[in-house]
């Protein structure tokens, strides 16, 4: 895809991604590459909202990108919430939107 967010040959580092993997986000299938963070994979699939806030259920997504802000919390295979920016994708993982303050750990 020409307008992909993934940088291709333009990357001066000569980047080669890891193996292709498949995951789901809220049950929709997404393709990604081993080594990518969940946040990067979602972004490349045009997903911007990763969780909803507790008070106003407002959508939130990747913000600080380095694990400080916790705005990109998602659930993986029904787990307690994890930071999408720090968590690498895994083939077959089921990622879901996290609604903060609802339900707690499954």
């Amino acid at each position: 895809m020409a307008d992909s967010l993934r940088v291709g040959d333009e990357d001066p580092r000569g980047l080669t991604r890891g193996a292709r993997v498949e995951l789901t986000f809220d049950e929709v299938s997404i393709e990604a590459y081993a080594g990518e963070s969940i946040a990067a994979a979602l972004l490349a699939a045009d997903v911007r909202a990763m969780r909803r806030t507790r008070r106003h259920e407002a959508p939130r997504g990747l913000f600080c990108g380095i694990g400080a802000c916790h705005d990109c919390l998602v659930r993986v295979d029904g787990s307690a919430p994890v930071r999408a920016c720090l968590t690498p994708v895994r083939d077959g993982m089921a990622v879901t939107t996290h609604v903060l303050g609802e339900g707690g750990p499954s």
């Binding site: 993934r6 940088v7 990067a40 911007r48 990747l62 913000f63 600080c64």
Partner: peptide, 25 residues
């Protein structure tokens, strides 16, 4: 500033250096 799609400059840098990814189109 709390809308998805707003990210920090450092976050954009982390995406690029760490993931080979642009923050948007």
């Amino acid at each position: 500033w709390d809308l998805p799609g707003v990210l920090t400059v450092g976050g954009a840098q982390a995406l690029l250096k760490g993931q080979g990814m642009r923050p948007g189109h």
